[in-house]
Simulated scan of single mutants.
Amino acid sequence: MRTKLYVLYGGKSVEHEISLKTAVTVLGSIDESRFEIYPVYITREGLWCTPEQLTQKELTAEHLIAEPKFHDPARSIGEILSGVMAMSGAKVVLPLLHGPNGEDGTVQGLLELLNVPYVGNGVLASALTLDKAMSKHVLAQAGIHQTEYLACRYEEWRTDENMLLLKAEESIGYPCYVKPASLGSSIGISRCTNRVELIAGIHEAFSYDQKLVIEREVIGREIQVAVMGNGKPVASLPGEFIHDHIFFNYESKYMDKRLTMSIPAELPEDLTQGIRTLAIQAYQAHGCEGLARVDFFLDGEGRLYLNEINALPGFTNFSMYPVMWERTDGTSYSELIEHLIGHAISRHEDKQTIQYKK
């Protein structure tokens, strides 16, 4: 019998549209001879529902949007859990939820309680990697080099704005970047070259999150590495986007048709291997399992800075993660999805050996 595959997408997040794009590509690549697919759409309000049955040829972002039967989150989630997800037989969940309320450990916690295998990182690693401030603390403890940074909560800013501004200017300086702590796709990020821009960037970041990070700018190349696996993870060849943007923001990532991928990135062999090793080190320091993309800066002096870890990288046709694996060992898009599902099932089986009574 085919394994039931529940694909969660959408979500109560500003990255809702990115999730839809990812879902279209993933759903269109799954081997239907092996998996019985059940799409589960989560609205911007956090309501769960299922779309009409679609063939892979009919897949579009618009067709994947559904209207919930219940407008209370508890009832809508309950209907899905007691209905389609309660069916007997082998099953696995594939969360394609970017940002808060999906990539941050919340949905992963629910899936742990349901005791079902799911693709990607667990509760702790999901929470750590999405929270840039906490991730930076973990990297510092692991001795992994990163740029100077400052984390701040909204209450600190509201209490003494001037103190934060002075602290940022003294310890970080200009140019700097202001980022919401728990968001991806470069949403809410500002490049600031003076105090006026810094104040505007702080307000922008706090409109998306209650915590932010201010980082010193690193001028150089942005190098990415795909990592996959549980206990013995492996890293892909590094890659980079070739572009001429000073700040690689949301519009640059998703709307610039001139972007080209360079995979493998043109690097000396020893540096390539060093980056792959460091990516695995950072992956393990966060307790990651399943998958993650690790991003670095490489400055003009050859110094390497770990920028961030993305525990649920994009899987659109313009995303680096699947292409890096294809260029590394020939893994196709559909094969990659099956590898990730295999890691999910293996991890779940290992957890079933844990004792919960004496």
Rank of each mutant, 00 (worst) to 15 (best):
E217Y: 10
Y177S: 05
C288Q: 01
H137T: 15
T147Y: 14
G28Q: 09
Y250S: 07
H203C: 12
Q108K: 09
L150I: 15
H71Y: 14
S236F: 00
Y321V: 08
M228Q: 11
N249T: 09
H98I: 03
K57G: 09
S346R: 11
A151D: 14
L212K: 02
L110S: 08
A181F: 04
F206V: 03
R195T: 12
N162V: 15
A74P: 06
F206R: 03
K253N: 10
T260N: 11
E103M: 07
N162F: 12
Y321C: 08
T3S: 08
A66M: 08
H145Y: 10
K232C: 13
S76F: 05
E169N: 11
E170L: 15
G274W: 03
G102P: 05
N194G: 12
L97P: 05
G109P: 04
G46K: 09
D104Q: 01
L128E: 04
E266D: 13
L340Y: 06
Y333K: 10
Y254I: 02
I172R: 08
R293I: 06
P51C: 00
L5F: 05
I37H: 00
L165S: 06
V218W: 07
I202Q: 00
E289C: 13
T353E: 07
L198R: 00
K351A: 14
G83Y: 03
Q224N: 12
N317Q: 09
G300S: 09
G300A: 04
P51A: 04
I263G: 05
P233G: 07
V123P: 03
R195H: 05
S190V: 13
R347M: 13
F35T: 11
